[in-house]
């Protein structure tokens, strides 16, 4: 059974070195994800901030940095602050570019508080989803 893991791949027409920059450097992350306060660094906590609000949107700790090959960090997002999941990126240089594989694991470790909060707000799950999509 593997219901608690998401795997995605994306092809980027650039070298692994360039692709790595998009996954780890603050100014590049800002353009497709959310801006962190600084570049990701091995063993360090990170937080990605909302562009307008400045609130923490996603956060965790960098677990592994193997430059141009592999990057892992723990991962929680604002609506589910105590979720305990991990995101693993691998970069494979192939002809004409780099294949990036993203694996989001541990989705069963959602954290009870998250649900407590959503219940307190008395929102249906669908409503909650709609709000999340606006982030």
């Amino acid at each position: 059974m593997n219901t608690s893991e998401i795997i995605k791949t994306v092809f980027l027409p650039v070298s692994a070195k360039v692709a790595w920059g998009y996954l780890t450097e603050a100014d590049k992350l800002a353009k497709w994800f959310h801006p962190p306060q600084q570049d990701l660094a091995d063993g360090q906590d990170y937080a990605l901030l909302g562009t307008d609000s400045g609130d923490k949107m996603c956060w965790g700790k960098v677990l592994k940095m193997d430059p141009y090959h592999a990057l892992s960090y723990s991962f929680a997002i604002k609506p589910f602050p105590d979720m305990d999941t991990e995101v693993h990126w691998t970069l494979d240089e192939i002809e004409g570019g780099t294949r990036i594989t993203m694996r989001h694991t541990g989705l069963e470790n959602v954290g009870a508080q998250s649900f407590g909060l959503s219940m307190a707000l008395d929102k249906g799950w669908d409503g909650h989803f709609a709000k999340l999509r606006d982030i």
Partner: peptide, 26 residues
């Protein structure tokens, strides 16, 4: 399994959106 699937579906969509944005940006 429905509620679990919804949870997974949320993140599935989340990453699709992010990775699309990444690919376009690059």
């Amino acid at each position: 399994f429905k509620s679990i699937m919804q949870w997974i579906a949320y993140f599935d969509q989340f990453w699709d959106d992010k990775l699309d944005a990444l690919a376009s940006l690059v």
